[in-house]
Structure formats: structure tokens, C-alpha cells
Write a protein that binds this DNA or RNA. Structure first.
Lengths: 211, 211
DNA sequence: CAGGAACCGTACCGTACGGTACTGAATAAT
DNA sequence: ATTATTCAGTACCGTACGGTACGGTTCCTG
């Protein structure tokens, strides 16, 4: 079960259809609804094919996570020169996107699945989710912060800590609360603005405080 | 299944022993290890007694959460006059305590259990955990923030938002990462200091910035 | 057209769990 | 001392799931 991402298209179209159906079942009914027989029935395929393609149930779960992660493609920010205004907008867009991702049906269902699977020794699911699920969006944010620093708009010593701070300001305990079943919030707008304002008060240079 | 907290001692000593054993099993092996037969065997009681006391398996899970929540007692902060120094110390103590609670074996196991249970209609577990698990520590922090404001050391308009900001600065995505299986961090000290410093830069008055 | 690979649908098996019933011992009540 | 209550221990039942095997169909290949 290598997770080298430099591989073939990873999944055939037929397998992708099956994975989509499996994700639909998972979102609808949680892990308990995700039985091999149920997936086979919903996807009009045989259990035998399921086991042939994914090995066993854990393989199916891993494939679902890998597939979902492969769908998340964050557009790389172009190298346009940052201004105080555009940096703030970029950060707010990032905040909104982050909240949207974390609030998504499929994301929540997969996180719940992986969390429920922890403490099973087979559980590379959590690790897999941490690695593949966040890398894209993390890198996008880190690049943005670095660009802000190069433009003289931000100042910080340790990029990783700074990013974690931004993340905490945006998300707070909202993610865990949603994982526990709370309905997704609707005021992502206000939340994003407040978080970015606070972040800029902490890490913005005089150059940006003036704006 | 009322959850009125103004009730009898809630659980008998025998039942508490059983709940302790059940928590031990849950921490050791996750939800799948928490079978009724297993609990009965580990606690030297019969399954029949289990069902008599807790109704069914869900009742046992709810009782475990209620019991664990009842154990968390945060000492109420005395009304001592706050100074810039003592407020900072109080906030850092709160941050350390919060991180310690969230990193605890039992807390993580129960959160994983409740999260895995979401999307079952029976699942009042998540709600129960949100309500009873956090109320104590939330109130303690809110009281501290209000005291800081009254002492002229903090300024904020909306207490709830301000508390959420503090929470986010302290925890960031650490809780979810631990829920996903990442080993608890060891540098709670540095984390607490950094979070409180950032928080005071955001919400401290001139009076405290000088210190 | 013949042979084979892929795959769907279903039937099947072993197991493990939630929940219930029963028995016998210990303790409390009368 | 006798009866009633509680509870541990065990055996049992129905169900549901993971995994495997098999028959039949389609489709591709030589």
C-alpha cells in the first residue's frame, strides 16, 4: 500500500464511479452504512470486484481518502505583486476556502471515518488524511505568507508557527464542533474578515497597518 | 434518558467502577473494543446488570460521557485583583490546562467515540459532549476575560468572539490532529506562551502593553 | 467463430456482536 | 430460619457483516 503520488492515473473510471458511490453512502449514513454489500449494490458491481480492486475493506477506505484528496486542487496563486489591499483579499479568500473545505459533507464524513478508525492498528487512515488532505491547502497558505513577507507587508520569524496561528484564528474550534455534529455555520464571511484582521494586526508591518 | 444535572449522585459506586472499567477499555482499544460482553467481563459484572443500569449500549456510552464530564471540576478563580502580570499568568495557566485536557487519553477516546457516532440518529452523544464537556472550562475562561476587562487590562466588544479567538490561538488545529492519531505535543509551554502573547497584543489595553 | 478475461449477481460461510433468558449464590428483609 | 432481592456467570438467539466461491453474461481478442 505505497502512497507514492507519482503513479498512474491512480483509479480507472469504473473504480472512480464506485468510489463516488461509496462516498455518497458514507456521507448519507456514516461508517456503519458503508458495508461492502451496500457499496456493491449501490454501484452495481460485485463484491468480488470490490475485493479484487481494493484488497479489503480498509483498502476501500484508503482509496476513498486518496481519491477525494486527489480531487482537491487549489489554484496556485499567480506571482502578481502584492499590495496591502490584495494581500488582505487573498487571505480572506483563503479563509473562506478553508472554511468551505472543512464544512464540506465529504470532508466531514471522511474525517469522522478516519477518526473513528484510529487505535486500530491498521489505521493509517488518519495519517493518510493528515498528509494528503491538508498538504495542498497548507502549501497555498504558506506560499501566500512568504509572498507577503517578501513584499514587506508581513513580518514573522517562523513560517510554520505563523501559519498555525492564522489557521487557529480562522477555524478556532469550529472544525471539532462540526465533527461532533453541529450544523455548519453560515457566517463564514464575517469569520474570515475577523480572522484576517486579527492576523494582520499581529503580523502586518507598518506598511500594511496604514492601509 | 433525561440529562437534568440536578439529580441524585448520578451513579452508584458500583456503577462508577463499571464506568471506569469501560473507559479503560475504550482508551485501550477504541470503540470496537468496547463490547458489552467485554465490559461485563472486565468489570466482573453480568451483562444483565449492564442492561438494567444503562438500558442499552447507547445508554452506557452516554453514561460514560456524563460521568467523565462530572469528574472535570475547574477551580473557580478567586476574586483577587488582577494585574498585568497576574492576568498573563492566569491566561497561560488556562492555556496549559486546556491543552492538557484536550490531550488527555480519556478525552481523546470519548471525542473519537462521539464523532464516530454522529449521523446515527440516536447520536445525542456529540451534543452531550459539546454541552457537558466544555461548559466548565468555557465558563472559567469567560469569567477570566470579563475580569480582565473590568480591571481595564483587556478591551473587547463581544466576549464570545473574543473567547473563540483565544481558543483558536491556543489550540489551532492541534485537537483535530490528535484526534486523527498524531502523538500529543510536548511543548505545551511554548504554545501557551505564544498564544497568550498574541492574544494580549490583540485585546490588551495600553495599560498591559506597557508591562 | 472460438477462447478467454472481466465482471455482475447471488448464494454461502464463519464470526462476532447486541440483547435476553436462566441458574445458582450471596445478602438483606421479615 | 425462611423468603425475597440482587447480581454474577453462562448459555443462547437472531442478525449483520466481511470475505469467498460459483454460475452466467458480456465483450474483447486472435
Amino acid at each position: 500500500m505505497m502512497l507514492d503520488s507519482r503513479k498512474q492515473p491512480e483509479f480507472s473510471t469504473r473504480q472512480i464511479a464506485v468510489l463516488e458511490e461509496a462516498l455518497r453512502l458514507l456521507v448519507a449514513g456514516g461508517e456503519k452504512a458503508l458495508t461492502t454489500a451496500g457499496v456493491a449494490r449501490a454501484a452495481n458491481c460485485s463484491k468480488e470486484s470490490l475485493y479484487k480492486w481494493f484488497g479489503d475493506r480498509d483498502g476501500l477506505l484508503s482509496a476513498m481518502i486518496a481519491y477525494q484528496a486527489s480531487k482537491v486542487r487549489t489554484l496556485e496563486s499567480d506571482g502578481e505583486r502584492l499590495t496591502a489591499q490584495s494581500l488582505r483579499e487573498r487571505l480572506e479568500t483563503f479563509a473562506r476556502d478553508l472554511l468551505a473545505v472543512l464544512s464540506g459533507d465529504v470532508s466531514l464524513a471522511l474525517n469522522r471515518l478516519a477518526i473513528g478508525q484510529v487505535s486500530r492498528e491498521s489505521a493509517k487512515l488518519g495519517e493518510l488524511l493528515r498528509e494528503r488532505g491538508r498538504r495542498q491547502i497548507d502549501r497555498r497558505a504558506r506560499a501566500l505568507l512568504d509572498a507577503g513577507q517578501r513584499a514587506g507587508l508581513l513580518f514573522f520569524a517562523e513560517g510554520e508557527d505563523t501559519y498555525r496561528t492564522l489557521y487557529g484564528l480562522i477555524v478556532s474550534d469550529l472544525h471539532v464542533r462540526m465533527l461532533l455534529g453541529e450544523a455548519p455555520t453560515k457566517d463564514t464571511e464575517r469569520r474570515a474578515e475577523r480572522a484576517v484582521s486579527a492576523f494582520l494586526r499581529l503580523y502586518g508591518t507598518e506598511k500594511i497597518q496604514a492601509a
